[in-house]
Design a protein around this nucleic acid. Structure first.
Lengths: 339, 339
DNA sequence: GTGAAAGCGCTAACAG
DNA sequence: CTGTTAGCGCTTTCAC
């Protein structure tokens, strides 16, 4: 594989047009002080060569790039759904979008957002949306908006959904169906959303007077693999729960798979509720009862907020929490031994 | 909004550590010829300052970045589904991923891929996957793989799905149900996939001895808005079809919406078949009968192929066509006046 | 109106 | 072992 023809640079254009690079630059950026015929000649060469300024070189020189970064650990249903919303917000804004994702590898999973941010901000992007960041420290120059951030008081703008209420409603729904042994497949311990979903679960049990049982709680980590083994532990025990509330849809779907593998029917033998309402949740069999999170809107709002910050316009609400709601589908039913 | 503290550069690190930038660079890149205690001191400063090399500056200097670009016109269900597959392929490959998208604006929609490629390749990315590119010309240095490319013989590697066969099977299915007035909501004229889907439709009609009627064909352009008005024309006429085959799911879903708006029941009064099987297609009401395209796998394969090209490894098959298959759901039924 | 030169942050010779 | 220097592609003074 040999290089057929390298990308044309500003130098190539200058040489072909018989002018200096400075002049070409002026033509590109529509600066004053270039003769009409020179402009024409340069433009002809530009289109002949198919020249386009290198984003990299430009952003190293300028500080403004008109590009917004979305930094994600991995491209999975949640983040891609968010991207659709981000794209909605970008359209017509004059900004372009760069999504940056590492391998989603197990390696430097912690602190990836700091690393990416350092690598991109200041150069390449004017600001960034961080999706489920964990350790976020001092702001590094460019504006940043976090979606579903880590635990603790974040000093910078955030967008999230009402995990507490969503979890409470989901648990109440299971209680209302008559379930008493309700397991929790908790989320990623470092994320605030996971904490709140556990809290909502506890509160609902509490209000209903159902004791919290420690052995009914496992860490699912928002991750299919982790959830699979956790669900197996939970469902393989003699004291198995009649319902599972999983902290996100990925782990809920994994739970259904484990249940079916163990010969349990969903929802007859086991009810499962998820969280997020990713498109995939309606596709599994049975379709998943879950808590809807307006993921797309979250992406939209986050980008809107970021654009305001970049433009140094005032932002009224820097901590935006959107509503969640229960979506009842086929994975839930009263327990077999219901009254 | 003032800049709290600008990003640390290699110069900052050098000054704090009392060495030259060259030395810092050597430490970062683990080159030989640096004293152990100097290395330690520099590393201490690096982590103290939270320094991370600028991707932009690095890629301007080096020519290898270990970053793969995915260039899309917009982030919608098809491209985001493809991204999931691309992420699958990236994991553990040592490459990182940058997705680049313009506003999806109506402006320079044609030729966007050339523009993006010019802006990114050579610098920033080692190679790129182009998603549904239209005008692709001479290769510009870096390796490129196209997914679902434009019409005509592409000189570079491509990945697509068997549109011809998928369309034929879909149309045959409608014919088999007893439909005779089957409309076609065609795709984007510039894409080969759209041409093939139309061809498949025609071939199926032909084999069944059903005449091709020009007035039953409209351009949907793979676009919801365009499809909505086209569907309205089609369904509002006295001679309306009993079934519509839409060239993708987005336009099929738009067709269902139009039908319902006009008081037509789907599938009783109108059958609709889509193409793609994006997750959303199962969520609409009624769930869409469609032709499955292994979008995720296409993303996976395209990235795999690209990585091989970047590494200058031999690629056995440079034009990969994956299978399609009909997925029957609720949007199709025999026509009201069926035999 | 045009070009020479400096510099954005970084790396790779090459001297010292 | 360490620092000086040049240059990646581009924009921007500032002379000419």
């Amino acid at each position: 594989m040999h290089q057929p023809r390298a990308r044309a640079t500003i130098r190539d254009v200058a040489e072909h047009a018989g002018v200096s690079v400075a002049t070409v630059s002026k033509v590109i950026n529509q600066r004053y002080g270039v003769a009409a015929d020179t402009t024409a000649r340069v433009q002809a060469v530009i289109s002949e060569l198919g020249y386009e300024a290198s984003l990299v070189a430009q952003s190293l020189r300028n500080h403004r790039t008109n590009v917004i970064g979305i930094l994600v650990a991995d491209l999975e249903p949640f983040s891609t759904e968010l991207l659709k919303g981000a794209a909605d917000a970008i359209r017509g804004s004059g900004f372009e979008l760069v999504v940056y994702s590492a391998g989603g590898g197990t390696s430097d999973m912690v602190g990836w957002e700091r690393r990416y941010l350092s690598r991109l901000s200041g150069t390449l992007v004017d600001g960034a949306v961080l999706v489920t960041p964990t350790v976020v420290e001092v702001q590094q120059g460019a504006p940043v908006v976090a979606v579903d951030p880590h635990t603790g008081p974040s000093d910078f703008p955030t967008v999230d959904a009402d995990s507490l209420r969503g979890a409470r409603v989901a648990t109440e729904y299971l209680l209302g169906l008559g379930h008493r042994r309700i397991a929790l497949l908790a989320g990623r311990e470092d994320l605030q959303s996971a904490k709140l979903r556990e809290q909502g679960y506890r509160e609902a049990l509490d209000v209903a007077g159902v004791p919290f049982v420690d052995s009914l709680v496992r860490i699912g980590g928002y991750d299919a693999e982790l959830a699979t083994s956790a669900a197996r532990e939970l469902l393989d025990s003699p004291e198995r729960p009649s319902a599972v509330f999983a902290a996100n849809d990925i782990t809920a779907i994994a739970t259904i798979a484990v249940a079916q593998e163990l010969g349990l029917r969903v929802p007859e033998d086991l009810s499962v509720v998820g969280f997020d309402n990713i498109p995939e949740s309606a596709l599994c069999n049975p379709p998943l009862t879950t808590v809807n999170q307006p993921i797309r809107t979250m992406g939209h709002r986050a980008v809107e907020m970021l654009i305001r910050l970049i433009r140094e316009q005032p932002v009224e609400l820097t901590h935006l929490t959107l509503d969640t709601e229960l979506v009842v589908r086929g994975s839930t039913a009263p327990p077999a031994s219901a009254p």
